[in-house]
Amino acid sequence: MSKNKNFIFHYAIFLFSSIGIFLTYRMHKLYSLNQECGTGNCNEIFNEVTFFGISNIYLGMAHYSILTTIGLSCIFLKKPIIKAIIPIRTLMIIIGFIYSIYLMSYIIFTDVRFCELCFYSACISTILFLFTIRLGFKNTSFKQSEFFKYLYISTALIIILLITTHKPNIQPSFKNETTNVATYDIPISGSVVFGNPNAKVTITEFTDFQ
């Protein structure tokens, strides 16, 4: 594979890992506000499926953050170190892909409703896995240049900007609202009363003797 194509796949892995950070951050914001993700039921997934008690939100956030950090650090590190950390990234991508298969299988084969954000995360994991296959599991070559540094840093800054400025839409809680209806005061003086007339609960019965 040529060095230019090699760079394209490295950058694509970095880009989608960065998008994964934004996605998991959005999950975190929705979950902290007790909001659902679109048409899905993400909160149920987050509460039921955990790994050693850790929510999938924070597992995913840590996973994508490490992948992004590895991709960004390859721009500045020396080649021997790059050759040592790229296999770690490859292993993490494989593990993330397998875990996404497990998570989607859990959603499909149980009574849990569809989780929109979980599906997006699974798509990202699949894309990363396919890019890794195309790049080659044993391929540790990485081209460095000033242009690539600016491109990676610009991408990272854009993701940081999106995270810091993102405000999820808060779904209003619907409450039963009474409609305006006419009310009438009916005089009850002189009516027959059984029991304590000052009781806290009163049952009024209307009768018609005509």
Rank of each mutant, 00 (worst) to 15 (best):
N34D: 13
N34Y: 13
N34E: 14
G38L: 07
G38I: 03
G38T: 06
T39P: 06
T39Q: 12
T39R: 12
T39A: 12
N41C: 03
N41Y: 04
C42T: 09
E44R: 08
E44Y: 09
I45D: 09
I45G: 05
F46L: 14
F46D: 15
N47K: 11
N47Q: 11
E48F: 10
V49W: 12
G53V: 05
G53T: 03
I54Y: 11
I54F: 08
S55C: 04
S55T: 04
N56D: 08
L59F: 12
L59M: 15
L59K: 11
G60V: 03
M61S: 07
A62P: 01
S65K: 12
I66R: 02
I66Q: 02
L67R: 03
T68K: 00
T68R: 02
T68Q: 04
T69G: 11
I70H: 00
G71I: 02
G71P: 01
S73E: 11
S73R: 05
S73H: 07
S73I: 09
C74T: 07
C74Y: 04
C74S: 06
I75H: 03
I75C: 06
F76P: 02
L77H: 02
L77F: 01
K78A: 10
P80I: 00
K83D: 05
K83G: 08
I85Q: 01
I85L: 02
I85F: 01
I86H: 01
I88Y: 00
I88H: 01
I88S: 01
I88P: 00
I88F: 02
R89P: 04
R89T: 06
T90W: 00
T90N: 08
L91I: 14
M92E: 05
I93G: 02
I93E: 01
I93D: 00
I94Q: 03
I94F: 07
I95G: 14
F97I: 02
I98Y: 04
Y99P: 13
Y99L: 15
S100I: 01
I101G: 07
I101C: 15
Y102S: 15
Y102K: 15
L103S: 05
L103T: 05
L103H: 02
L103Q: 07
L103M: 14
S105F: 10
Y106P: 12
I107C: 12
I107R: 12
T110G: 04
D111G: 11
V112T: 11
V112M: 12
V112H: 11
R113E: 14
R113I: 08
F114L: 14
F114E: 14
C115H: 02
L117N: 09
L117Q: 10
L117P: 05
F119H: 05
F119D: 10
Y120N: 13
Y120L: 15
Y120Q: 14
S121F: 03
A122W: 00
A122Y: 02
C123S: 09
I124Q: 03
I127S: 13
I127F: 15
I127K: 08
L128S: 06
L128A: 05
L128C: 10
L130V: 15
L130W: 13
L130K: 14
F131E: 08
T132E: 14
I133Y: 09
R134Q: 15
G136C: 10
N139L: 04
T140W: 06
T140Q: 11
S141N: 08
